[in-house]
Computed example of a mutant assay.
Amino acid sequence: MASDLRDTRAPIFHIAERAQWEAVRDAGRPYEVSTRGRTLAEEGFIHASRDEDQVSKVRRAFYADLDDLVLLVIDPARLDVRHESVGDDVFPHIYGPIPPEAVIEVRALPENR
């Protein structure tokens, strides 16, 4: 099932705290935050979403109390991305850090409600 949803050309998305993203971007270092409060080293991969519907669900579930967030739009062709089952859905997981050049766009997320 996971391979049916995989389109290596389609961008994937990662919710990031603005300050964390800007710090690594400004330093020219790879981004290594897996999810809120967990690093790539701790989790083993970086959580991502395949579309904006998944982004909305993840945001409500894990980031609802934060308002200074950005959405990283990522070129998966530059990374080791595996689409894996999580419950009844399939999410892209990034195995390794995200180099700044793999981020093709950074979008501000609207304020949480």
Rank of each mutant, 00 (worst) to 15 (best):
M1F: 12
M1S: 15
M1T: 13
A2H: 09
D4P: 12
D4W: 12
R6M: 07
R6V: 06
D7W: 13
T8A: 14
T8N: 13
R9Y: 02
R9A: 08
P11Y: 02
I12A: 06
H14G: 06
H14I: 05
H14S: 08
I15D: 10
I15V: 13
I15Q: 11
I15S: 09
I15R: 11
A16Q: 06
R18L: 01
R18A: 07
A19N: 08
A19F: 10
Q20V: 10
Q20W: 12
Q20K: 14
Q20H: 13
W21Y: 10
E22T: 14
E22R: 13
A23W: 03
A23P: 03
D26V: 03
A27S: 09
A27P: 01
A27Q: 07
A27L: 05
G28Y: 05
G28H: 02
R29P: 00
R29L: 03
P30T: 08
P30E: 06
Y31L: 02
Y31V: 03
Y31S: 05
S34E: 00
G37R: 03
R38S: 10
T39Q: 10
L40Q: 05
L40W: 06
E42D: 15
G44F: 00
I46Q: 02
I46R: 00
A48G: 13
S49A: 12
R50E: 15
D51C: 06
Q54N: 14
Q54G: 11
V55P: 13
V55I: 15
V55D: 14
K57I: 09
A61Y: 01
F62G: 03
F62V: 02
F62D: 01
Y63E: 10
Y63A: 07
A64H: 15
D65I: 02
D65Y: 04
V70F: 08
L72H: 15
L72N: 10
V73K: 09
I74V: 14
I74L: 04
D75S: 00
R78D: 09
L79T: 04
L79K: 04
D80N: 01
D80L: 00
V81G: 09
R82F: 09
R82A: 08
R82Y: 07
H83V: 12
V86C: 05
V86P: 02
V86K: 11
D88S: 13
D89H: 04
V90C: 05
V90R: 02
F91P: 01
P92S: 08
P92C: 08
P92H: 06
G96P: 05
G96M: 03
P97N: 13
I98V: 11
I98N: 07
I98G: 07
P99E: 11
P100V: 03
P100N: 08
E101K: 10
E101Y: 06
E101Q: 15
A102C: 07
V103T: 12
V103S: 12
V103L: 11
I104S: 06
E105F: 02
V106D: 12
A108P: 13
L109K: 09
P110D: 08
N112R: 13
N112L: 00
R113T: 02
